[in-house]
């Protein structure tokens, strides 16, 4: 007769657990299906026809895809490095000081690329860069590098600033007390303590650059296709799992880097 008395769970809310589970599954299911069909033996994107690496082999031999992938990596690396260096310098200048003139405007500027819709930035860049291109005749990768660097800066800035704010000011005071001039203090104390923040900042900048499609698509000149712009160009055509294979290849570095950032932050 006696029913087991169940303790009243203070934190539970009816249905929330189901919603959370469904939400997370829904976040992954479409991506998983996309990845699964990149291994499809037939050219269908909806009917499973057996397992095959064929589309990966095909993508691997498609110079358009490989060149686009290599250019994506190149661009993400260069823009990531520039953005990280600039963001580190800016974060050091802007954190841990009393309020100063120009603080708000600097902060707004740094974060400005986060706020403006990408398409608006992309088109305004298109207009300006087109004018510069016809004036100078230069149509190299410089335009993409500067555009990517600009929108990567706020992402690189975020973890670096967080790390700086969490840092004990006394450490630098202690270094100065122990005969380190400002430069030595920076090299021996600030930079090493900042390390994980800088690594996380670079990784985020790298991922953001790798993901960009709108700005790249409008700013690029001939021969500057990245993997996302290549994929966007495929929409109107008959899509085959080859695009899925390319997408799967692009997913891997992003997921690895984000997991790495997560682990770095947790260790802190």
């Amino acid at each position: 007769m006696a029913t087991k008395a169940k303790a009243f769970d203070l934190k539970a809310q009816p249905g929330f657990s189901a919603i959370a589970r469904i939400a997370v599954v829904s976040l992954y299911l479409p991506i998983i299906i996309l990845v699964v069909f990149s291994f499809n033996a037939t050219s269908s994107l909806g009917v499973w026809g057996g397992f095959s690496f064929g589309w990966f082999v095909m993508a691997w031999h498609n110079d358009l895809i490989i060149n686009a992938a290599l250019f994506s990596l190149f661009l993400a690396t260069v823009a990531g490095v520039f953005a990280t260096i600039m963001a580190t310098m800016a974060a050091i200048a802007m954190t841990r000081s009393d309020a100063y003139r120009g603080q708000t405007i600097s902060y707004a500027l740094i974060n400005q690329p986060l706020i403006v819709p990408e398409i608006v930035t992309a088109i305004s860049l298109l207009i300006v860069f087109a004018a510069v291109k016809s004036a100078t005749g230069y149509s190299g990768t410089g335009y993409l590098v500067i555009a990517h660097t600009a929108f990567c800066i706020p992402f690189a800035y975020l973890p670096i600033r967080a790390r700086l704010e969490g840092m004990d000011l006394n450490l630098e005071t202690a270094a100065a007390d122990l005969y380190a001039d400002p430069w030595k203090t920076f090299v021996h104390v600030t930079l090493p303590r900042l390390g994980p923040g800088i690594v996380a900042g670079f990784m985020l900048a790298f991922v953001v650059s790798l993901d960009d499609v709108v700005i790249t698509d409008l700013v690029k000149s001939g021969g500057q296709e990245t993997l996302p712009t290549f994929m966007l160009g495929q929409i109107r055509r008959d899509m085959t799992p080859e695009v899925n294979a390319a997408a799967t290849m692009l997913l891997i570095p992003s997921i690895l880097l984000v997991t790495a950032v997560h682990l770095i932050n947790r260790k802190k």
Partner: peptide
């Protein structure tokens, strides 16, 4: 923290790919 990683990964995953994934799901041959 593991749950939050699960939420964060899609956020940092290529937006175009995620849109493609939905497109694949909804298409007439999907």
């Amino acid at each position: 923290s593991q749950w939050m990683l699960l939420i964060t990964i899609p956020f940092w995953t290529n937006l175009l790919i995620r849109t493609f994934a939905i497109m694949g799901l909804l298409s007439n041959q999907g």
